[in-house]
């Protein structure tokens, strides 16, 4: 059963942002930062949904919510500075205002996955949209089978949420492997690509749900590896990224074949997108 936002009525004017103050700014790595927004202005969200964030006078970009959907006192976003808007957002300080529209989109199937083993595979900043799922799983641990998280990043310096990752690693009954592509001698974890680490996780492929977030190349490779391991394509979920201007299915930019990434996604069942992913430049 896909999850959709039903918690609140759509805002009357879906294109105008609300201006919300930043309450906390954290630098995660050289080019990644996290900030919290004052929650009294926030609306409920489900893990995997995104907001459109506006930097005054510069522009607006879609950013997945990286915080806890059940602790709405903080509305958290984690962003990599790659363009003018994300760079402008990266210069904000506590007290500055950010424009926000949302939440939008269909998130991760945390309800559907109840009773199943859950595998989360994140690449790079793809861990941010999956962090709400990790919070959810930790809060509702008994409702799920075995849990495994794989997280791949470029180098140890590029890892985000480092102290939390260490907490999760120490959590009983919570398998976590972190792989970097290259590391200095101080790194004692895995070095290599993230996908082969699947073989290190214990799970029952016939009773498992997988959620993948990362670059599209990684999504394709990981989904195939999961299928090879025995997961049905209907139990694999992937988060897609495309250009977005409106987030409400009106601007046309985020189309991917018949899908609008903004309203049909960003999280899609792999079985729905696997053939589309096989075409270049779709």
């Amino acid at each position: 059963m896909p999850q959709t936002l039903k918690a609140c009525a759509p805002p009357s004017y879906p294109m105008a942002p609300r201006m919300i103050p930043v309450t906390r700014f954290i630098r995660e790595s050289q080019d990644v930062f996290t900030f919290d927004l004052a929650a009294e202005h926030a609306t409920p969200f489900t893990p995997g949904q995104f907001n459109m964030l506006y930097a005054f006078g510069v522009g607006e970009i879609p950013i997945s919510i990286s915080g806890d959907s059940e602790a709405p006192e903080r509305l958290t976003h984690t962003i990599r500075a790659v363009g003018p808007v994300s760079a402008a957002l990266g210069k904000l300080q506590a007290g500055d205002q950010v424009g926000l529209r949302g939440p939008f989109g269909v998130g991760w199937p945390v309800e559907e996955a109840k009773g199943f083993d859950v595998l989360l595979i994140a690449g790079g900043i793809g861990l941010a949209p999956l962090r709400p799922v990790i919070y959810w799983l930790l809060r509702h641990r008994a409702a799920y089978g075995r849990v495994g998280v794989l997280y791949g990043a470029r180098t140890p310096d590029d890892l985000i949420f480092r102290s939390e990752v260490e907490e999760w690693r120490r959590t009983p009954d919570f398998q976590l492997r972190v792989a970097v592509e290259r590391a200095g001698p101080e790194w004692t974890g895995d070095v290599g690509y993230v996908t082969p680490l699947l073989s290190k996780l214990r799970f029952d492929a016939t009773e498992a749900v997988a959620m993948i977030c990362g670059p599209e190349v990684m999504i394709r490779a990981t989904a195939l590896a999961l299928e090879d391991a025995g997961l049905a394509d209907s139990r694999i979920f992937v988060s897609m990224e495309r250009n977005m201007k409106c987030a409400i299915g009106h601007c046309g930019h985020c189309q991917f074949g018949p899908l609008f990434i903004c309203k049909d996604g960003p999280v899609h069942r792999y079985g729905r997108v696997r053939s589309l992913l096989s075409y270049r430049e779709l």
Partner: peptide, 20 residues
């Protein structure tokens, strides 16, 4: 062969292509 495939992915540095 699996290592070769992984090495190619690593060589492409594809984590850079992901955004939230």
């Amino acid at each position: 062969v699996k290592r070769l495939q992984s090495a190619r992915m690593q060589a492409l540095g594809m984590y850079d292509a992901a955004n939230a």
